[in-house]
Design a protein around this nucleic acid. Structure first.
Lengths: 229, 229
DNA sequence: ATATAAGGTGTATTATTTACACTAAGTAAT
DNA sequence: ATTACTTAGTGTAAATAATACACCTTATAT
């Protein structure tokens, strides 16, 4: 361990693009920094990786500290390592995106010790971001655009029980385009991974829609087959 | 730079899965280690990132040291950071895959100062690998399997001028399945990104095939459109 | 000349994707 | 209870893409 590592002062951090979906809007969690560098700037939540935690563990911890939630769906997607990306030294940052259900009952209030404030901000109205976080965000958004076509990640952004219209909204906002209602439903239902709960939405004005849930078992059975949502 | 970074002894490395294609076989470049840990084991080529180079630069350098080649197609695809993946300390490794043309005239002989030897080994006949390199390799292979369907990476494995049969071989060996000759040709040509060179193979026994090249300009014009090779 | 080995070609069938508009059902206001 | 309003929910025809499938051509080697 001695002579080989490390060759110079360096460290690694995790940065998270935390996507949340609420009433038709795609948002991410941003913090307002309370420390130099980039004091008072908006930034992606992130932190230094600790000695005794893997990258995935670190990402979970950071997200838990920020939201109080555990078991959030996360995926590592790229590592940013330009020499001067951090003004205080060599910091290589491993980027994760996370997907979670906002809205409804639990009204997720982000809490943060290391930031002035944390807010959910619509991806279409982002402020300037610290460091290379704009780039990290853009690559993250690109990733989920690709991945939503082949993997069932849309469901992570919705409550357990959801309507087909809500599901369609997720696809529309992530792909930034309108989809045809009939074709969308036909295709989604044709995979056989949505379970009709024979239950209706509650507390909406106007006609209530049928609730569905994502059937992970049936989806697991399909595996191997390339699905194209 | 002082008080924040770093919190503990750590370093980052690059590991490369270097794919080469030669006479119908998909191979990767492995080195036999000359130093502890894992002395005498086969391993993916890799090295420590230097202070003044970005990750991409580091990956290029490592590959250049090994092959003498520059301008090789490379992509970062995943970062491995389990706490104990390296027995000598905390080493986070950023994995790249590279694709290059073997065979024919230049008969690429890998040279290596930091290894006993380096060889091109068929991906179906890999030995046990050092560290977590088996995992790194598998994820790399998975990546190119996915990517070859949407991006024109197959051409990186072929010489400038190639036949349709050679191209089909690349797809077959990466996807591990036979494809129909007529359907493959029809589809490939339908994208309009292959230029018929009106020239035949030289020096083959039996009938010579027409040579094509990949037309990057025409491909660039298609962009935005999702292609499915 | 002949045998050999790979090159090169077309069509019919099936599956998938797209385009498109109205009726049904529940709520809210009068 | 009637009406107006808003979203839920449904089917078919046309176009496009994917698949299955077999023979003749051409250059080389003997």
């Amino acid at each position: 361990m001695k002579e080989v590592l490390p060759k110079f002062n360096s460290t690694f951090s995790i940065d998270c693009v935390v996507f949340g979906f609420d009433e038709g809007e795609l948002k991410i969690l941003l913090i307002e920094r309370n420390e130099e560098p980039f004091k008072d700037w908006w930034a992606l939540p992130g932190n230094i990786v600790e000695e005794n935690e893997s990258l995935d563990q670190s990402a979970s911890r950071i997200l838990n500290e920020l939201t109080g939630l555990t078991n959030i769906y996360m995926e590592q997607y790229y590592t940013f390592g330009d020499v001067n990306r951090h003004p205080q030294g060599r910091v290589v940052s491993i980027a994760y995106y996370a997907l979670l259900r906002l809205g409804g009952d639990k009204a997720l209030k982000p809490l943060s010790t290391y930031a002035k404030q944390a807010h959910w901000i619509n991806v279409k109205e982002l402020p300037k971001l610290a460091f290379d976080h704009q780039q990290i965000f853009e690559k993250g958004l690109e990733k989920i655009k690709r991945r939503i076509k082949h993997q069932p990640i849309a469901f992570e952004l919705l409550p357990e029980k959801f309507t087909l219209t809500q599901l369609q909204n997720v696809y529309e906002v992530i792909l930034s385009k309108k989809l045809d209602k009939r074709n969308f439903r036909k295709k989604m239902l044709s995979f056989g991974v949505l379970k009709d709960l024979e239950e209706k939405q509650q507390g909406v004005s106007f006609r209530a829609a049928t609730l569905y849930k994502f059937d992970r078992r049936k989806y697991a059975k399909l595996f191997g087959k390339e699905i194209s949502f």
